[in-house]
């Protein structure tokens, strides 16, 4: 029996960036085992929402509530949210010169396990995760995201997710800047991670990732609000017809 409490639940979230409101009251409930997708055009507020939920200091949540496994997260710093089980795969992962992928991953895993935790299994886990995501072993000693291609960066993001095994994964445009082979690899990684006990929220402009990772629900975001929620068929319709018909529907023209 899986836990019946929602993995992630947020209500009436408003987000401000540099004094401007970019998310204007959105709500969602993600139950264990569910995959949700937020679709929307650039500038619709979907990336701002995921950054704000993760605790980015430039994205201020001015109103609303957010709970991870029933626990309020809005007073937590980003690192506390991470250790509580929230994960964000970045749209633009940052390079940290001089810090190897292995050292970075070890530090991250250790922060989750606690300072005195036994890390003797790290090497094995890390190697297995690299193999799963077709990441060459040489990446272990490369500096994180330094000179990586788009596809390599996204694979390393999913690798981090699989190793930290969070309760709730936010995937921000994990399909952007990635060729079709990499999309397949990344999708397999997401599907491997996904289980009855965790939640996935994919934020994407395009439908193509959703061909490989099947969402239970699709939310369409425009101008900081969810304007429509439906099943996977909604994603297909957006792919065929674009976002314009929604504009008309919303404004009643």
């Amino acid at each position: 029996m899986s836990d019946k409490k929602p993995i992630l639940e947020f209500k009436d979230i408003h987000v401000e960036v540099e004094g401007k409101e970019v998310v204007k009251g959105v709500s969602m409930t993600i139950n264990p085992g569910e995959i949700h997708a937020i679709m929307g055009k650039n500038g619709s507020g979907k990336s701002s929402l995921s950054n704000a939920l993760m605790g980015h200091p430039s994205y201020t949540i001015t109103k609303g509530e957010a709970y991870l496994k029933g626990e309020s997260i809005l007073d937590m710093e980003a690192d506390e949210r991470s250790r509580a089980g929230l994960f964000l795969a970045f749209q633009y992962p940052l390079a940290i010169p001089g810090v190897t992928v292995a050292n970075f991953m070890r530090a991250a895993l250790k922060s989750h396990r606690g300072a005195d935790a036994d890390m003797s299994d790290f090497r094995k886990l890390f190697k297995a995760a690299m193999t799963d995501l077709s990441v060459d072993q040489s990446f272990a000693t490369r500096y994180i995201n330094d000179g990586f291609s788009g596809g390599e960066k996204k694979r390393i993001e999913v690798l981090q997710m699989s190793m930290l095994n969070p309760a709730m994964a936010l995937l921000d445009e994990t399909d952007s800047g990635v060729d079709i082979d990499a999309i397949k690899i990344v999708s397999e990684g997401i599907n491997r991670y996904q289980s009855e006990n965790n939640g996935v929220l994919m934020v994407t402009h395009y439908q193509r990732l959703l061909n490989y990772v099947k969402p239970d629900k699709v939310h369409v975001m425009m101008d900081g609000k969810f304007v429509l929620t439906g099943g996977p068929e909604l994603a297909l319709k957006l792919e065929e017809s674009g976002y314009e018909w929604l504009n008309e529907e919303k404004t009643g023209v």
């Binding site: 980003a78 991470s82 970045f90 989750h112 930290l164």
Partner: peptide, 8 residues
């Protein structure tokens, strides 16, 4: 933010 979002 990137590093703290991983738990550090």
């Amino acid at each position: 933010f990137y590093l703290t979002s991983r738990g550090l």
